[in-house]
Amino acid sequence: MKRLAIFDFDGTLFDSVHDVIVCFNKALSMNGFPTLTREEYIERLGGNIDEIVSLILKDKNSKENIELIKKDYQKLYDESNKDNTLPFPNSLEILKELQERNILLAINSNRTTDSIKYFVSNFFKEIDFVSIEGHNPDFPSKPNPYGVNNIIKKAGVSLDEVVYIGDSKTDIKTAKNAKIDCILVSWGYGSKKEYEDKYILEVIDDMYQLLNFFD
C-alpha cells in the first residue's frame, strides 16, 4: 500500500506557466533577445533555472547571457503579482482527502523551495506536507533523486510505499532514478509521447483518480 505521495509542483498541482512566460519574455526583450511562444516554453520546462534559460537562449546561451537573463527574470518574477498561478481544479480537495486517509504528502520540484512555500501558504494552508524539496543550487536538481531521497528518508517509508505524481518526462526520470512508482497527470505540460512511457503506472485525467491508488 502507498503511504507517501510526492507531487511535482508546476503542471501537476499548480498551473503556473503563464506568469513564467510573461516574465521571461520581458527579460528577453529588455536584453535584445527574441521572445518565445507558449509552446516553445513548455518544450523547455522541467529542468532547473539555469537549464531552462540555456534552452530558451538556444545558440546564444553563453554563461554571461544565462546569468543576465536569469537575474532579470528572477527580479521580474519576484516583483510580479503572480495572479495567474493557481492550483489546478480539485487539487486542495484531493490533498485534504489523502491527508484524512493518513497518507504522507510532499512536494519535489525544480522551482525554489521559498517559491513553493509561498504558494502553499496561500492556497494549501490546511495541508501538512511532510517535506518540500525545491531547487537548491548547492545540490543536484531533478531528475537526480536527491530531493526525493531526502523526502523518503524524512518520511521513514520504504520505496514500494511511495508514488511520484508529475506531468513530464523529468518527473518520469526522477521516479526511475529514485526507484519508485510514477503517475502522470494529463492536465500539465507533458506530451502524448511521454504518456506512452511504460514505466508509469497510469496517466490520469482527473485529480480524483488519484484516490484509487490509496484505498
Rank of each mutant, 00 (worst) to 15 (best):
P87D: 11
T85A: 06
S80L: 09
D83N: 14
P87A: 06
S62G: 14
I107P: 01
E67T: 11
Q74K: 07
D83W: 06
Y73N: 02
D83K: 14
I66Q: 08
K75M: 08
E64Q: 13
E100F: 01
D83Q: 10
P87T: 13
L104T: 08
I69E: 04
D83G: 14
L86F: 11
I107C: 01
I107G: 04
K63H: 09
L68E: 04
F88M: 02
E97N: 04
L86M: 10
L95V: 13
N81M: 05
S109L: 02
N84D: 14
I94L: 04
F88A: 07
L95T: 12
E67W: 08
D114N: 08
D78N: 09
T85W: 12
D114A: 10
L105P: 08
K60T: 08
Q99N: 01
L86K: 13
D83T: 15
N61K: 04
Y73P: 01
N102S: 13
R111W: 05
S80G: 11
L68M: 15
N108Y: 09
E79K: 12
L104M: 12
E79Y: 12
S80C: 11
D72E: 15
D72W: 05
N81P: 00
K96S: 06
L95G: 08
L92G: 01
L86D: 01
Y73V: 07
N110T: 10
Y73A: 04
I107H: 03
K71N: 14
N90E: 12
K70V: 08
D72G: 01
Y77G: 05
P87E: 07
L95S: 05
N65Y: 10
Y73R: 02
R101I: 04
Q74L: 12
L98D: 02
L92I: 14
D114P: 00
D114R: 13
K70Y: 11
K75F: 11
R101T: 02
K70N: 07
I103S: 01
N90Y: 15
K71S: 15
F88C: 02
R111Y: 02
N108P: 00
E79G: 04
K71I: 03
Y73S: 01
N65G: 07
Q74Y: 02
N102T: 09
N61E: 03
N81R: 12
E67R: 15
E67M: 12
T112R: 10
